[in-house]
């Protein structure tokens, strides 16, 4: 067998390990899904009546607002799942099992790819769950099959990028507590974008930040795909952000993992 097929085989073994963790302890998955669902319900049922632009009273306003925020909530979902990755990476590093892996003749990166692919699958499951809740309470996307596919692809790209970032954050954390706090901003970044309110309503300084942060083009593109009948005009920025974050995080994570463990 070649080195490459060894790396693939080892990674597959590690992915299987992560999936087993996930199946055995579904509470983590449910917990990660819980927050975005809560946000969704909170925003639609508490703020929706006041925020929506519908002309037919509070119910129509709510339905309208739901369509507006669904993409932002889906991105929060992806970010929230990534937070789980940082925690599970940090927990893993604190255990002796990773020291064992390091002394074995296996592809080194497989420990990380196991986490990334496992988390990606978990994130997609959670995203599907949140989407289902959104549809259930009245989210009515206009996307055709091609747009749906593109939307799923975009969410997967975003999830992949944030997962690698979280792996790096999990590795850089000295404790599990730190690891659970470090990715926190990721969950709140979608709020500082076009996810919940039109950017024109924001004060100038904040608006400047919003224009240049990655979640804005991601939200715009996802919204365009789901309810706008196309990819919109910021999809290149969205894809570029994902590619850039992935690349930087991958290199960072790999370097962190390869550096000698302290003491």
């Amino acid at each position: 067998m070649t080195a490459l097929s060894h790396a693939a085989g080892d990674s597959a073994t590690m992915v299987a390990r992560q999936l087993r963790h996930m199946l055995r302890y579904p509470s983590m998955t449910l917990l990660l899904a819980g927050m975005p669902v809560l946000f969704l319900l909170l925003f639609v049922y508490v703020f929706g009546g006041a925020m929506g632009a519908g002309a037919g009273g509070a119910a129509a306003a709510r339905a309208d607002y739901l369509d507006y925020i669904a993409p932002g909530v889906l991105l929060i979902t992806v970010a929230s799942a990534a937070q789980g990755t940082a925690i599970s990476v940090a927990m893993d590093m604190a255990e002796g099992i990773v020291a064992r892996f390091r002394t074995m003749d296996i592809a080194r990166v497989s420990v990380l790819t196991g986490h990334v692919v496992g988390s990606l699958i978990q994130a997609m499951l959670i995203t599907a769950l949140v989407t289902a809740v959104a549809l259930l309470i009245g989210f009515r996307p206009t996307a055709g099959p091609a747009e749906w596919l593109a939307a799923i692809g975009l969410l997967a790209l975003a999830s992949y990028a944030l997962t690698w970032l979280s792996v790096a954050l999990g590795l850089v954390s000295k404790s599990v507590e730190t690891a659970s706090n470090l990715p926190m901003p990721l969950v709140f970044l979608p709020f500082l974008g076009s996810g919940f309110v039109p950017t024109e309503t924001l004060p100038a300084g904040l608006r400047w930040f919003v224009e240049y942060q990655p979640f804005t083009p991601l939200t715009e593109t996802l919204r365009a795909l789901l309810t706008g009948g196309g990819a919109g005009d910021s999809w290149t920025a969205a894809v570029a952000w994902c590619a850039g974050i992935t690349l930087v995080s991958y290199v960072w994570a790999k370097r962190l993992y390869n550096r000698a463990p302290s003491a």
């Binding site: 073994t13 055995r24 064992r100």
Partner: peptide, 26 residues
Amino acid sequence: VTGQYSAVDGLLTGQENLMLMAGLHR
């Protein structure tokens, strides 16, 4: 290597831990 600190995957069963090692030894 069997170190001073336990190097088992606590979330997996004993059997799964051993199967994991078997997988990594191809």
